[in-house]
Design a binder for these strands. Structure first.
Lengths: 213, 213
DNA sequence: ACCTGAACACCGTTCAAGT
DNA sequence: ACCTGAACACCGTTCAAGT
């Protein structure tokens, strides 16, 4: 088996990722995901994608009508993975689930530079709607009125995406180094900042509920 | 004078915006701003910009080293205008100033499709840092500790930009028509939603201050 | 200093053709 | 159905040259 492997590898040493049979939709999404993780959305070109797959630039167009739709699929995959990584929080209270989802969504999307801002310019998908980690219906079950549930849900959605889309600005916080002049100035780490923001939102939503205008 | 004007206009009827003397930096920024307002960031090309100015595509490169730097200047201009539109709020309390700034920033940036998401991917400028409508120092003067002031400031900054960058998704809310499937579902208008979010943040920040962890 | 003209090195994508 | 090959219609930008 070892010699067989070596033989194959020698044969294909110039085509980076050879698939066994024919190209599939998932092959393309996976290759695109790898490239985005490596060089960001701006670094993904249909020609580089084709090179990595060992095909011609036009091959992907048999599975996706445009580059935008391919990136939509990559975005849906990443967001779905973030949601799955959050399954352990399913039984917690709504506030703890939101906190957990904010962290996982942030760390998932920041691994793919430019993906969050790409998604922000696109129509919202069902996958994206699940982003705050809690649905409108679940807010209602937690005792919110229909209007309050929608408002609270949209507010969390807005904040979490605001958080994610400013990823580059939080980068200097991740290391212990002194802040760059172009960074947001906070003396704490990213996770502490996320916790603070979530605490603020949770406390604020509770206060809005008990003191209706 | 009138006949002179007519003569000139007849002569240049195919070059849309003729400047009187030589090109200036502000001429270029203004033309770029117009194009972005009309067709969005994606619709701005150096060739179209040159056409509108009646020059060659390379002329702008004498004033800006890249298209990105030109867009930075446009973004700074728009954000500065939003801040100036907010001068009337300068004497209000910090919470009312933040509310006012959230509304003006949202409406200013949504007039330029794609500009908010472009700015999110760029290093932060001094103009952008003024976006929440209140500085870290002013939070301190309002009685917050240095750490609390930084956190509160960054939280507002994050929320307001989250709000602005999701502009396209709030669009169905602006008219009375039934929501598209790709819109965030809220039964209220954009301004009511902004007020709700700001109320939540203000109440939450107050609660965080009185109940330190 | 200010701007032009031509070209380079890319893009995403259409289109007709191959198997 | 699945993929190729060549081309089209663009981009931002470099570079040398004009005035």
């Amino acid at each position: 088996v070892a010699s067989e492997r070596a033989e194959i590898e020698a044969e294909i040493d110039e085509s980076p990722r050879r698939r066994s049979t024919t190209l599939t939709r998932d092959d393309i999404i996976e290759a695109a995901r790898r490239i985005v993780a490596l060089v960001g959305v701006d670094g993904l070109t249909m020609r580089r994608l084709a090179d990595d797959l060992g095909v011609t630039p036009m091959a992907a167009y048999h599975y996706f009508t445009s580059k935008e739709q391919l990136l939509d699929a990559v975005g849906a995959l990443v967001v779905r993975e973030a949601r799955d990584a959050d399954r352990g929080a399913a039984l917690l209270s709504w506030d703890e689930r939101i906190r957990s989802n904010a962290h996982t969504t942030f760390h998932a999307l920041t691994a793919y530079p430019g993906l969050a801002t790409f998604l922000l310019d696109r129509p919202i998908s069902r996958d994206l709607r699940a982003t705050p980690g809690i649905s409108v219906e679940e807010f209602e079950q937690a005792g919110f009125s229909r209007d309050e549930a929608q408002l609270a849900h949209a507010t969390f959605h807005t904040y979490v995406f605001g958080l994610v889309s400013m990823e580059t600005r939080f980068r200097p916080l991740k290391r212990g180094r002194k802040p760059d002049s172009d960074a947001i100035l906070i003396n704490v780490g990213v996770d502490e900042f996320i916790d603070y923001g979530i605490d603020v939102l949770i406390a604020g939503i509770r206060a809005q509920r008990s003191h209706p205008s």
